[in-house]
Write a protein that binds this DNA or RNA. Sequence first.
DNA 1: GTCTATAGGTGGATAGAC
DNA 2: GTCTATCCACCTATAGAC
Lengths: 192, 192
Amino acid sequence: MPMATQDTPNRLLDLAQDLVQERGFNAFSYKDLAGAIGIKTASVHYHFPVKEDLGAALITRYRDRLDAALAEIDRGARSGKSKLRRFIQLYRDTEACGAICACGSLAADRETLPAAMQDGVEDYFSRAEQWIAKTISDGVRAGEFELAGPPTEAATTLLAGLQGGLILSRARPGRQTLEVVQRNFFRTLEPS
Amino acid sequence: MPMATQDTPNRLLDLAQDLVQERGFNAFSYKDLAGAIGIKTASVHYHFPVKEDLGAALITRYRDRLDAALAEIDRGARSGKSKLRRFIQLYRDTEACGAICACGSLAADRETLPAAMQDGVEDYFSRAEQWIAKTISDGVRAGEFELAGPPTEAATTLLAGLQGGLILSRARPGRQTLEVVQRNFFRTLEPS
DNA sequence: GTCTATAGGTGGATAGAC
DNA sequence: GTCTATCCACCTATAGAC
């Protein structure tokens, strides 16, 4: 991976995403972004005229990266369990940074956000949930998993556990909440 | 319940709590509070000199109400399942309002909050988690529940599921996420 | 307890030069 | 693309009269 110096819009999106995950969309300013990369706020407005543009671009990119990560997992992993483990690992990486999911943060701020951003957040959760449900469902058909309820409900429960687990770890730094959530989740999939 | 007209400090705390649960601590102002009860911002500062005072009082009250609710559940309910159902119902009531847990909201904003408020949020989660763990543990001892892992892990997972479920329902209005979380949770406690 | 008035700071955003 | 300069709205907070 070459990873040359990024263009300004992407550097701004990187910074904005970090700040969303650490402080929330309403708790950072163009000044924060500008200062971090050594330009002025007016220059940030050149790339993203209003903050809603920045937010919408951030969500689109975040969602695209989720899609890419899920495709990568589907390409690489063999068993349903290893796929789900890799998926959960994405959130555990976030937890390790002391951050929360960008879309979880944005969902908490929902009432204060423009409609376009609200829709993007909704879409992110739906994609994640559907991927989990499909992966569980495939595992059940293959005889790898056995669960009491419908796969869609297990998927919703896992996603809720991951989002809430990040919140709990944020409130109580040092705890590995997601490790516990993961363990409990896999217990519900075990064949008896 | 007489429910006479409340004193100003409590009316302010009621409003502030609603706004925290709907918009977040950094997304409402003294002007919002003052306007809602027909006084001026300077008068709000009389009751809560700085916003941190308001936030700390809000959290203390929220935590005390949790304790009271848990004590009430312990007094009234017979089975472990009915206790847990009543506990979950507290969050389902919040979900029905389209709101999230005040402490979940505050945890998401953690980095922007004064230390005193951060500690209060941490305490809220720990109390909730410990009550759940004890209730599950009692149920196991009584032969009412049977679960694969330790009660403390089931407790953490439930609390995470409730907090995250509120986030998911906030992002996707109309969905009854917590009903799903509840159903999946009780499945993990069923004797085989 | 509540008010008027105000201070000092920060926010998002724009115009126009370079 | 980036800058300087500026606008206006909002926020938290305080002083002092009533």
